[in-house]
Simulated assay, not measured.
Amino acid sequence: MIEVHFVEADGRRHRVLARSNITLMELAVRQGMPGILAECGGSCACATCHVVIDPDWTAAIGGPNDMEDMMLDLVDRQPGSRLSCQVKLRDAMTGMVVHLPNPNG
Score class of each variant (00 low, 15 high):
Ala38Pro: 09
Glu3Gly: 08
Thr94Phe: 00
Asp91Gly: 04
Val16Ile: 11
Glu26Met: 04
Asp91Pro: 04
Asn102Trp: 09
Asp10Pro: 01
His50Cys: 08
Arg82Val: 01
Thr48Ala: 02
Ala9Lys: 14
Gly62Leu: 15
Glu68Cys: 09
Gly11Ile: 00
Ser81Val: 05
Asn21Gly: 09
Cys46Glu: 02
Val87Gln: 01
Ser81Gln: 03
Gly35Tyr: 03
Gly63Glu: 09
Met33Trp: 08
Asp10Cys: 10
Met93Val: 03
Asn21Asp: 13
Ala92Ile: 09
Cys49Ser: 12
Arg77Phe: 02
Glu26Val: 01
Glu3Ser: 13
Val98Pro: 02
Glu3Asn: 15
Glu26Cys: 03
Val29Leu: 14
Val16Asp: 04
Ala9Leu: 13
Ala38Ser: 14
Met96Trp: 08
Met70Gly: 02
Ser84Gly: 02
Asp76Leu: 14
Val98Glu: 00
Met67Trp: 10
Glu68Ile: 10
Ala28Asn: 07
Val97Lys: 01
Leu72Lys: 02
Thr48Trp: 09
Pro101Thr: 04
Met25Thr: 02
Asn65Gln: 04
Ser43Asp: 14
Trp57Asp: 12
Ile61Gln: 07
Met67Lys: 15
Val75Asn: 00
Cys85Asn: 07
Lys88Leu: 06
Asn21His: 11
Glu26Tyr: 00
Ala38Cys: 15
Leu74Phe: 11
Leu72Thr: 05
Cys44Thr: 13
Ala59Lys: 10
Val29Ala: 04
Met71Val: 08
Val98Ala: 05
Val75Arg: 04
Ala60Ser: 14
Arg90Gly: 03
Pro64Trp: 05
Val29Pro: 03
Arg90Cys: 07
Glu39Gln: 07
Arg82Leu: 09
Ile2Asn: 11
Val7Ala: 13
Val29His: 10
Arg12Gln: 11
Ala60Tyr: 09
Cys44Pro: 12
Leu24Pro: 04
Thr58Tyr: 00
Pro55Ile: 10
Asp69Ala: 11
Gly11Arg: 05
Leu37Phe: 09
Asn21Pro: 08
Asp56Trp: 05
Glu8Leu: 05
Pro55Ser: 08
Met71Lys: 12
Gly62Gln: 14
Gly80Lys: 06
Leu37His: 11
Ala9Ser: 14
Asn102Gln: 05
Gly41Val: 10
Met67Glu: 15
Leu72Gln: 06
Cys40Val: 10
Leu24Asn: 05
Leu83Cys: 00
Ala45Glu: 15
Leu100Gly: 01
Thr48Asp: 06
Ser81Met: 06
Met70Ile: 04
Leu37Glu: 14
Leu74Val: 00
Ser43Val: 12
Ala9Val: 13
Gln86Leu: 14
Arg12Ala: 09
Leu89Thr: 05
Pro34Ser: 14
Pro103Asp: 09
Val29Ile: 08
Thr58Trp: 03
Glu8Asp: 07
Asp56Tyr: 10
Cys44Phe: 07
Val97Arg: 06
Gly32His: 15
Ile53Gly: 00
Gly80His: 11
Val98Asp: 00
His14Lys: 10
Ala47Trp: 00
Met1Val: 07
Val87Pro: 01
His14Leu: 12
Ala60Val: 14
Pro103Ser: 05
Cys46Asn: 08
Ile2Thr: 12
Arg19Lys: 10
Pro79Cys: 06
Ala47Arg: 12
Arg15Met: 13
Met71Cys: 08
Cys40Ser: 12
Leu72Ala: 02
Leu89Phe: 03
Ala45Cys: 11
Met71Thr: 05
Asn21Val: 07
Met33Tyr: 06
Asp10Arg: 13
Leu100Arg: 00
Met71Leu: 15
Asp91His: 07
Met71Glu: 09
